[in-house]
Simulated scan of single mutants.
Amino acid sequence: MAKLPPYPGTTGRRDWKTAFAAIRKLLANGDDTTQVFRIMRALNVGNAPMNYAKLLGAHEGGRIAYERVELAQRLSDPAFVAGFAPGTVGAAYRDWLATTGYSADGLVEVSKLEPDSNEIQHPYAWFGRRVRDSHDLWHVLTGYKADESMGEAALVAFSYAQVGGLGWAFIGTAAALKSIKATGSRLFAKAVWEGYRHGKKAKWVSGEDYLTLLDEPLEAARARLNIQEPVAYKHAQAVLGPKMASYMSQRREEAGVAPAATPPIDGERIAA
Results as ranks from 00 to 15, higher is better:
K54T: 08
R63A: 07
T33E: 03
H139I: 00
V140A: 06
A48S: 03
V163P: 09
S103D: 10
Y196S: 07
G143E: 05
N118K: 13
D31S: 07
R222W: 14
T173E: 05
E216I: 00
R14C: 04
M1N: 09
Q121A: 13
A169Y: 15
S246C: 10
F84V: 15
T88Q: 07
A271L: 10
D95S: 05
A191M: 09
E109V: 10
D105A: 12
T11S: 15
D147C: 10
E194Y: 11
S185V: 11
E219V: 05
P5D: 14
E60G: 11
P259R: 12
Y196R: 04
P242T: 00
S76T: 09
G267T: 07
N47R: 10
F80R: 00
S117V: 11
E70H: 12
R130W: 15
G46M: 07
I171H: 05
R222A: 02
R132S: 06
A42C: 03
A176S: 14
K145N: 11
S111T: 15
A82R: 07
W138P: 01
K200Y: 13
K181V: 06
G46K: 05
G143A: 03
S149R: 14
P259Q: 12
A91W: 03
N44P: 12
P230S: 03
A255Y: 05
A53K: 13
N118W: 14
L97G: 00
Q35I: 01
V156S: 10
S179Q: 08
F158G: 02
A191G: 14
D266V: 00
T262R: 15
T212E: 15
